[in-house]
């Protein structure tokens, strides 16, 4: 290390090796086919998401797309937390609820426009959620899951019991977005940013620390890093995604009620993650695009749709726990080899 005589040659060698490390995993693109192979799936995904509002112009389907986006953010957060940090959070509705109520209060009591309420609710809500979850961070596995499951329930009942924040009626008459296009593209762009941002993050150095916490928290401690601090950062990221979803939801439906703490927001993201394939980050998003429209189509059957996706979830976790996306990725890579031969 630094004790050794660092001559110019040695340093050059090191720099060369640094380049080798950085380029490891990058392969030379020699033909347009290979270029397509790399870029096409991502391009299709981004364009597909961005073109969705054009393909489904009806007001009803616009709403569905927005809802898919909200669930997509929650599912991304769940997948990030569960598969890259090792915390199983059942508290999707906590994030939605806190973000939603915060945005509604800011809008009604302080008269701020959505332009301000959404960023404030996102950051402020994320801070509140992180502070709430902070004491539970040393817990692991079932215990953390139970605490995060309980928070939305207790907030739900406290609002009901104290009759604050509009009680069971909720806060009505929250300002809406100027037009549906703004609404659509806001959520879709945020979803895309969140997806690629998180994908980038987990491969950065700090992302490696997160993965270290998941694999082996004792070794992270022995490496001189505070695991609580890094878990808190991860929870902050996740809850910011969720709180944005909540604030957005409140502004499209123009109401913040205790239904924001409903179990749906905890269960559907998990189901989407299991179906789409945990640990891929794209998978959960696709899972939402599959699951939420189906569940909208089944709305006529009332609570049967919850049965429906619970059963799908159960079937996937029992028989194909890798999920659709992992399967598809494997097939896609096989396809590449097949072309070459």
């Amino acid at each position: 290390m630094d004790k050794n005589p660092a001559t110019a040659e040695r340093r050059k060698e090191r720099l060369d090796r640094g380049i080798k490390v950085r380029t490891e995993g990058i392969y030379a693109i020699s033909s347009w086919q290979e270029m397509c192979y790399l870029v096409l799936p991502r391009l299709i995904l981004i364009l597909g998401i961005l073109l969705l509002p054009f393909m489904m112009p009806s007001l009803y389907w616009n709403r569905v797309i927005s809802i898919v986006g909200i669930y997509g953010l929650l599912a991304l957060g769940f997948d990030f937390l569960a598969h890259y940090v090792g915390l199983v959070s059942l508290g999707g509705s906590l994030f939605i609820g806190v973000g939603g109520y915060l945005a509604a209060v800011l809008n009604k009591s302080f008269g701020l426009s959505p332009l301000f309420t959404i960023p404030i609710a996102t950051l402020g809500g994320a801070i509140i959620c992180t502070l709430l979850i902070l004491p539970a961070l040393p817990l692991r596995g079932v215990y953390f899951a139970i605490v995060t499951l309980m928070y939305p329930l207790v907030l739900f009942r406290i609002i009901e019991a104290l009759n604050i924040l509009g009680g069971t009626d909720g806060i009505l008459g929250v300002a809406s977005f100027p037009n549906p296009w703004v609404e659509q593209y806001l959520i879709l762009v945020i979803v895309i940013i969140a997806l690629f941002g998180l994908r980038r993050l987990v491969n950065e150095d700090i992302g490696l620390v997160f993965r270290g916490v998941k694999d082996n928290d004792q070794a992270v401690k022995a490496s001189g890093l505070s695991i609580t601090y890094y878990k808190a950062i991860a929870v902050f990221i996740t809850s910011a995604l969720g709180c944005f979803g909540g604030a957005f939801f409140v502004h499209i439906y123009m109401v913040a009620g205790i239904s924001l703490f409903a179990l749906d927001y905890s269960v559907i993201p998990i189901a989407a993650t299991v179906i789409g394939g945990g640990g891929t980050l794209v998978g959960p998003l696709l899972g939402c695009f599959i699951l939420v429209p189906i569940s909208e189509l089944l709305r006529a059957f009332g609570t049967l749709r919850i049965v429906f996706y619970s059963v799908i979830l159960l079937a996937f976790i029992m028989f194909r726990s890798e999920g659709v996306m992992v399967y598809a990725q494997r097939k896609y890579h096989q396809f590449e080899r097949w072309v070459k031969v």
Partner: peptide
């Protein structure tokens, strides 16, 4: 994780 999710889904399915 799967245990929690599976039992939770099962309970939810039955109740709903």
């Amino acid at each position: 994780t799967s245990e929690i999710i599976a039992t939770y889904a099962l309970g939810l399915a039955i109740l709903e």
